[in-house]
Each structure stands twice: as C-alpha cells, then as structure tokens.
Computed example of a mutant assay.
Amino acid sequence: MTPGGNLKIGIVGAPPKVREDNVKFISLSLGDVEEKSFRDVDAVFINKNYLPEAAEAKYAKVYLESLVPFIFINSEKVYLAFIDEELSYEDAHTSKAGDYLIGYFNHKYFGLSLYNHQNTKKTI
C-alpha cells in the first residue's frame, strides 16, 4: 500500500461491506491464486465457502512463497490446513482459538478475533 493510497485487497468470494473509503476489493478466483495472478494487491482474503478447496495441496506453495499476506476468513481449521501439502481441510485440527481471521505471511501465522467472539455487523 502506498502511503495515503488505497488498500487493495484481492478477495476470493463476495467482498464484505466496509465503512472505510480507502479500501478497494479486487475479485479473484482460486484459479488466479494458483496462477499467482494477484500481484497488484496488498493482501488476499479467502471467504469461508472456498476454504476446503483453498486448502488443496496445489495452493500450499503459493501461500508459503507469497509476497503478500493470505487471510482465511472464518476458518474452523488451523492455518496448517493451508500450508501443509499432506493435510486436507477436513483432516486438519479444529481451531480452538476462536479467531475470525487466520493469516499466513513470511513464514508466520496470525489470528484475529472479533470482539467477544460475536459475529455481528458491528464487530465485523
């Protein structure tokens, strides 16, 4: 993101409604992710409905080598489901942290939870 510029987020799935004027969502497919066609974004978000497919082995190297963070929205599984080629989404451990967003970038993972773990318009 350029200082004072828009935050450009690639998103697989429907973009959320946000109050901020400086956030622009760019629609992506998982095919775009596989082909690494997301170079002009500051991060990539993947919506919940796409997570089982996004955890397929063919995407793991993309996440591991990406120059931008990948954020997995409302995943029931731990981050390893996405970066371990041997692990499917279904077989991965269920996350006990209660994070709404889990992310992976530069060999580090992170999680963000909602206020009081409540999924409402106000907390998102």
Rank of each mutant, 00 (worst) to 15 (best):
N6C: 10
F70L: 12
Y115W: 03
P3S: 11
K48L: 08
D40Y: 02
Y109V: 02
Y63V: 04
L87I: 13
H117C: 02
K108Q: 02
E86C: 13
H107D: 06
S29V: 05
S113C: 04
F70M: 05
F82K: 09
S75I: 09
V41G: 04
Q118V: 07
R19V: 03
I83Q: 09
D84F: 12
E53N: 14
Q118Y: 05
N106Q: 01
K24R: 11
E35N: 11
F38K: 02
E90P: 11
N119Y: 06
A43V: 00
D84N: 15
A43K: 01
N119L: 06
E90H: 14
L87R: 13
P52F: 14
A57G: 10
S75T: 10
S29I: 10
L28R: 08
G111H: 03
K61E: 09
V78A: 12
I102V: 02
S37H: 08
E86H: 14
D84Q: 13
N49L: 13
R39P: 00
L80F: 13
I26N: 10
R39W: 02
V23L: 06
G111T: 01
Y115F: 05
I102G: 00
G103S: 02
D42K: 00
N106T: 00
G13V: 06
D42G: 07
R19G: 10
L112F: 05
K122Y: 07
V78F: 13
K17Q: 09
T2K: 14
I26C: 09
V33W: 07
